[in-house]
Deep mutational scan, measured.
Amino acid sequence: RTVITEEFKVPDKMVGFIIGRGGEQISRIQAESGCKIQIASESSGIPERPCVLTGTPESIEQAKRLLGQIVDRCRN
């Protein structure tokens, strides 16, 4: 099985929602997708915060879908 790493950007102001209380939301996304997610600790003042996704191509797609759902929910 091929493990790859891909960068994905999330809106900086939504990082708190993505991580969740005590990290529970990000842990759930990682468990559900099987993908490791590392969010940069600093956005360096830019509106997007880079995340590094590591896993199989399928797990990365699943993680991006779950992250996208959270971002959409927070935008509305």
Rank of each mutant, 00 (worst) to 15 (best):
R1F: 10
R1L: 08
R1D: 15
R1P: 03
T2V: 12
T2H: 10
T2G: 14
V3F: 09
V3P: 06
V3H: 05
V3A: 09
I4P: 02
I4G: 05
I4R: 09
I4D: 06
I4W: 06
T5Y: 04
T5D: 03
T5G: 02
E6Q: 09
E6D: 08
E6H: 08
E7N: 15
E7C: 05
E7M: 06
E7Y: 12
E7K: 13
F8R: 01
F8A: 04
F8I: 08
K9R: 08
K9S: 15
K9E: 11
K9Y: 06
K9C: 10
V10Y: 02
V10N: 01
V10W: 02
V10E: 01
V10C: 06
P11K: 02
P11C: 03
P11N: 04
P11Y: 02
D12R: 07
D12W: 03
D12T: 09
D12F: 04
D12Y: 06
K13V: 03
K13E: 12
K13R: 11
M14T: 05
M14V: 04
M14E: 03
M14F: 06
V15D: 02
V15Q: 04
V15P: 02
V15R: 03
V15M: 09
G16Y: 05
G16Q: 12
G16V: 04
F17C: 08
F17G: 10
F17Q: 12
I18T: 03
I18F: 05
I18L: 08
I19D: 09
I19S: 11
I19Y: 05
I19H: 04
I19L: 13
I19K: 10
I19E: 08
I19M: 09
G20T: 03
G20R: 04
R21M: 14
G22P: 03
G22S: 08
G22R: 13
G22H: 07
G23K: 08
G23F: 06
E24P: 03
E24V: 12
E24F: 11
E24S: 15
Q25L: 05
Q25W: 03
Q25C: 13
Q25G: 10
Q25V: 08
I26R: 03
I26M: 10
I26E: 02
I26G: 01
I26V: 13
I26N: 01
S27W: 04
S27L: 08
S27R: 15
S27F: 05
S27I: 04
S27Y: 03
S27P: 03
S27A: 12
S27D: 08
R28G: 05
R28S: 08
R28A: 13
I29W: 01
I29C: 04
I29Y: 01
I29K: 01
Q30D: 01
Q30Y: 02
A31L: 09
A31Q: 14
A31N: 11
A31V: 10
A31W: 04
E32H: 04
E32S: 07
S33F: 01
S33V: 03
S33I: 02
S33R: 00
S33D: 01
S33E: 01
G34A: 06
G34S: 08
G34W: 01
G34C: 03
G34D: 09
C35F: 00
C35E: 01
K36P: 00
K36T: 10
K36A: 09
K36R: 12
K36S: 12
I37P: 01
I37W: 00
I37Y: 00
Q38P: 00
Q38I: 07
Q38W: 06
I39H: 02
I39A: 02
I39P: 02
I39L: 06
A40D: 14
A40W: 07
A40S: 13
A40M: 09
S41T: 13
S41C: 12
S41Y: 04
E42M: 12
E42Q: 12
E42L: 08
E42I: 05
S43D: 12
S43Q: 10
S44N: 10
S44K: 14
G45F: 06
G45A: 11
I46Q: 14
I46V: 14
I46M: 10
I46E: 15
I46G: 14
P47S: 15
P47N: 08
P47H: 12
P47G: 10
P47Y: 06
E48V: 06
E48C: 05
R49E: 04
R49A: 04
R49L: 04
R49F: 04
P50S: 11
P50E: 13
P50R: 10
C51P: 01
C51L: 09
C51A: 08
C51Q: 01
V52T: 11
V52A: 12
V52L: 13
V52N: 05
V52P: 00
V52E: 09
V52I: 12
L53P: 00
T54C: 04
T54G: 01
G55S: 00
G55M: 00
G55N: 00
G55H: 00
T56I: 03
T56Y: 10
T56C: 07
T56W: 02
T56V: 07
P57H: 07
P57L: 06
P57C: 05
P57W: 09
E58F: 06
E58L: 04
E58D: 10
E58W: 04
E58H: 03
S59H: 03
S59N: 13
S59M: 05
S59L: 00
S59R: 05
I60Y: 00
I60R: 03
E61S: 12
E61Q: 13
E61F: 12
Q62W: 07
Q62L: 11
Q62H: 13
A63D: 00
A63H: 00
K64V: 02
K64F: 00
K64N: 01
K64Y: 01
K64I: 03
R65E: 15
R65A: 12
L66V: 06
L66S: 09
L66T: 07
L67S: 00
L67V: 08
L67W: 00
L67I: 05
G68C: 09
G68T: 10
G68Y: 11
G68V: 13
G68S: 09
G68D: 14
Q69R: 14
Q69A: 14
Q69L: 10
Q69I: 15
I70T: 15
I70E: 14
I70M: 13
I70R: 13
V71F: 07
V71Y: 11
V71R: 05
V71M: 13
D72M: 08
D72E: 14
D72F: 06
D72L: 08
D72T: 07
R73D: 15
R73H: 14
R73I: 05
R73W: 08
C74T: 14
C74F: 07
C74V: 12
R75W: 14
R75C: 06
R75T: 15
R75P: 13
R75H: 14
N76I: 04
N76Q: 05
